[in-house]
Simulated assay, not measured.
Amino acid sequence: MKVVVTGGAGFIGANLSRELVRRGVDVIVLDDLSTGRKSNLDGIDVELRLRSVLDRDAVMDACRGADSVVHLAAVPSVPRSLRDPRHSHDVNVTGTLEVLEAARAADAHVVVASSSSVYGRSPVLPKSEEMACQPVSPYASGKLAAESYALSFQHCFDLPCAVFRFFNVFGPLQLPAHPYAAVVPSFIWAALRGEPLEVFGDGEQSRDFTFVGSVVDVLADCVTRTVSCAHPVNLAFGTRNSLNDLIALLAALLGRELDVVHRPARNGDVRHSQASGKALRGLFPSVQPVPLEAALCRTVKWVKRLANSEIARSTA
């Protein structure tokens, strides 16, 4: 089986590529390394093509003969989309269209990554796929457009497709030390360095934190069984923890109290997020989530190794 993973040198993509190779799949990674890292693929037998999803010919060539295409390439983060909406749109929407056209030409099954941010600020919990979407950021709007394109290709061109809405995915390979870093690695990085954890707002905002290993299990199963669905599917398991809960868990894991500094809430951020996992469990009944505490423990270990390697490089 041949699978193309766009954004395959990124956090989720590299974890997925490793799992697909473990399952005996031939993997082509298409990544321009704008947010991914070549080192994420160290020790994995994949073919890496250093190209953007906006490069039509490169996408077409990579997808030729593919059985499935997993489209993870994106400009991530709400704050980044606020800073440069056009670039976010170009990659997240136009890039998705290029991938869909290439998958259609190859007659390949396609998996598209969307985001829980498409639900916006609706107070209704949990978020079910039948809810009206009310995106409140350029990033969320682009993700909604991307998933709409994918499902329209399935309807119009019989392109077998699965669209997943990711909910705050975290775990090993997710980089902590950059301006748009996600909250879990940022908190761990600051805690390990003895710095205060930066919280935007009061910390009572809540998220359905999802370990990358669980996400990868679903995506790999989706690819190998060529699962398709006529509507988007939440890829999360219906848990909900506040940032204050997260800080308390990290403090317990590290065995000490953590300093916190509060900043004003950010534009485009959603107050509460929690998935309805009914559709996911119907399609993938065997996949079990990793409990938050265990997942945080594994992530802390990885960030510690990253920190030690950074120290080693700086003193070499």
Results as ranks from 00 to 15, higher is better:
residue 47 E to I: 00
residue 48 L to Y: 08
residue 48 L to R: 04
residue 48 L to N: 06
residue 49 R to M: 05
residue 51 R to I: 01
residue 52 S to V: 04
residue 52 S to M: 03
residue 52 S to R: 07
residue 53 V to D: 02
residue 53 V to F: 13
residue 55 D to H: 09
residue 55 D to Q: 00
residue 56 R to N: 01
residue 56 R to Y: 07
residue 58 A to T: 06
residue 59 V to C: 06
residue 59 V to P: 13
residue 59 V to A: 08
residue 60 M to C: 03
residue 61 D to M: 03
residue 61 D to H: 06
residue 61 D to K: 07
residue 61 D to S: 13
residue 62 A to Q: 03
residue 63 C to T: 09
residue 63 C to Y: 10
residue 63 C to P: 14
residue 64 R to I: 01
residue 64 R to T: 00
residue 64 R to V: 03
residue 64 R to A: 14
residue 65 G to F: 14
residue 66 A to S: 15
residue 67 D to G: 15
residue 67 D to E: 15
residue 67 D to C: 09
residue 67 D to H: 15
residue 68 S to Y: 09
residue 68 S to R: 12
residue 69 V to N: 09
residue 70 V to M: 15
residue 70 V to Q: 12
residue 71 H to D: 14
residue 71 H to R: 14
residue 71 H to V: 14
residue 73 A to L: 13
residue 73 A to N: 11
residue 75 V to K: 11
residue 75 V to T: 05
residue 76 P to M: 09
residue 77 S to V: 04
residue 77 S to Y: 04
residue 77 S to G: 09
residue 77 S to C: 09
residue 78 V to E: 03
residue 78 V to W: 05
residue 78 V to P: 09
residue 79 P to T: 02
residue 79 P to S: 03
residue 80 R to L: 14
residue 80 R to I: 01
residue 82 L to E: 08
residue 84 D to E: 10
residue 86 R to C: 00
residue 86 R to M: 05
residue 86 R to T: 03
residue 87 H to G: 04
residue 87 H to V: 05
residue 88 S to I: 02
residue 88 S to T: 12
residue 88 S to D: 14
residue 89 H to E: 07
residue 89 H to S: 04
residue 91 V to W: 04
residue 92 N to S: 09
residue 93 V to D: 02
residue 94 T to V: 12
residue 94 T to G: 02
residue 95 G to M: 06
residue 97 L to M: 10
residue 97 L to C: 01
residue 98 E to G: 01
residue 100 L to T: 10
residue 101 E to C: 01
residue 102 A to G: 04
residue 103 A to Y: 13
residue 104 R to S: 13
residue 104 R to T: 08
residue 105 A to N: 05
residue 105 A to G: 00
residue 105 A to V: 08
residue 105 A to C: 07
residue 105 A to H: 11
residue 105 A to R: 15
residue 106 A to D: 03
residue 106 A to E: 02
residue 107 D to R: 14
residue 107 D to L: 00
residue 107 D to V: 01
residue 108 A to C: 12
residue 109 H to Y: 07
residue 109 H to R: 07
residue 109 H to G: 00
residue 109 H to E: 02
residue 109 H to W: 12
residue 110 V to S: 04
residue 110 V to P: 07
residue 111 V to G: 00
residue 111 V to C: 02
residue 111 V to R: 04
residue 112 V to K: 11
residue 112 V to H: 07
residue 112 V to M: 13
residue 112 V to A: 07
residue 112 V to R: 12
residue 112 V to W: 14
residue 113 A to R: 13
residue 113 A to L: 14
residue 113 A to I: 06
residue 114 S to D: 10
residue 115 S to L: 08
residue 115 S to G: 09
residue 118 V to W: 13
residue 118 V to E: 11
residue 119 Y to K: 12
residue 119 Y to D: 08
residue 120 G to I: 00
residue 120 G to M: 11
residue 120 G to D: 14
residue 120 G to P: 10
residue 121 R to P: 06
residue 122 S to P: 00
residue 122 S to Q: 10
residue 124 V to S: 01
residue 124 V to E: 13
residue 126 P to N: 06
residue 127 K to I: 01
residue 129 E to V: 12
residue 131 M to E: 11
residue 131 M to W: 10
residue 132 A to Y: 01
residue 132 A to R: 12
residue 132 A to L: 10
residue 133 C to S: 09
residue 133 C to V: 14
residue 133 C to M: 11
residue 133 C to F: 07
residue 134 Q to R: 15
residue 134 Q to E: 15
residue 134 Q to D: 13
residue 138 P to G: 10
residue 138 P to I: 05
residue 139 Y to S: 12
residue 140 A to R: 10
residue 140 A to T: 12
residue 140 A to E: 09
residue 141 S to F: 06
